[in-house]
Simulated assay, not measured.
Amino acid sequence: MASTRREFLALAGAGMMLGASGRLWAQVSTTVGDWQVTSVSDGHLSLPRGFYFDGLPEAELAPILEAQGLMGDMIASPCNVTLARREGAVVLFDCGAGPAFMESAGELIEALDVIDVAPQDVTHVVFTHGHPDHLWGVLDDFDEPVFSEAAHLMGDAEWNYWRDPETVETIGEARASFAVGAARRLELVEERITAVADGEEILPGLVALASHGHTPGHMSFVLQGGSEAFLVAGDAIVNGHVALARPSWELGSDQDPAQGAATRLRLLDMLVTEEMRLIGYHLPDGGLGRIERAGEAYRFVAEGA
């Protein structure tokens, strides 16, 4: 008998379903002090190879990609949404792509349902940045807020960038639709949005950390619990292959590639030096784990590996 979609998601929530870009539907959890932190899949993106790697030295790039099994013209990238819960707070970091961006993404609501979290349970939606796979899930098919009971928070520089009418003219043709889509959605949730600054404690034990480069106002967030700190990295560490093997390379998936590389190096060093764990939005195996040095490079070690 064929499995229903609900059965498929339930299997995946139990860590039993594998997909092309790893455990596409697996959710993995950990604790940070009194926070329960869970990586929940929104599906995956499929983007042209050149979007990431145009201009990079092919002789060095090819063996890195080959080692990861990335040999085609398209690159599949998992989308790991972070859910952090403790008494009185259900915090969602980003809200996925929604139904309008890419068929392989936009599955967050169904994935949350597997772990018995309804949209109205969410108390805070905290955006790392305004790209479609992080923001467009804020509205449903009728342009109503999906997380109707939640406060919405975004870095002040990021908010200003996407609300600026000149952004669509300066962002470049490949990303012009990103700007149009972000501006429309942010306008519709404007009354719900609170802008936050670098270093601001937006909830007890939750601090904003500027990590600009992937977008002009990209923000990561540090969860603090007892003596432990945990990084919700967003796209500051933009993938689990070239960004780690050659962290100083300037990648086309960052809007400011030079600043993105500088931010990435700073965060990777911090994660290793301070022995911090993280969730990366596009890292493999749910994106929850730790970073280790590997000579002049780094590697990601998934939780439990």
Rank of each mutant, 00 (worst) to 15 (best):
D269Y: 03
A182W: 02
L267I: 08
D254P: 07
V238N: 13
G234C: 02
D256M: 02
A67G: 12
R85A: 08
Q36N: 03
A305L: 11
V242C: 12
E149P: 00
R192C: 08
G155A: 15
H212R: 07
V146E: 08
P204F: 11
G260E: 03
T123H: 01
H44L: 10
V37S: 07
F300D: 13
W249N: 02
A100N: 06
H241D: 15
E250F: 02
W159V: 02
F142P: 02
L209F: 11
L267S: 14
G304W: 11
L65K: 07
L61N: 12
G287M: 12
V32Q: 15
I202P: 13
G106Q: 04
N80A: 08
M219G: 00
L278G: 13
A197W: 13
E296F: 10
M270E: 15
W162M: 10
P132S: 03
Q224W: 00
I75D: 02
E292S: 03
E166W: 04
F8C: 07
H241Q: 14
T82W: 09
E187S: 14
G226V: 04
N160W: 02
E173K: 06
V232E: 03
R246D: 04
P78I: 04
V168M: 10
A84H: 00
V138I: 15
G181A: 10
I64T: 09
G19D: 12
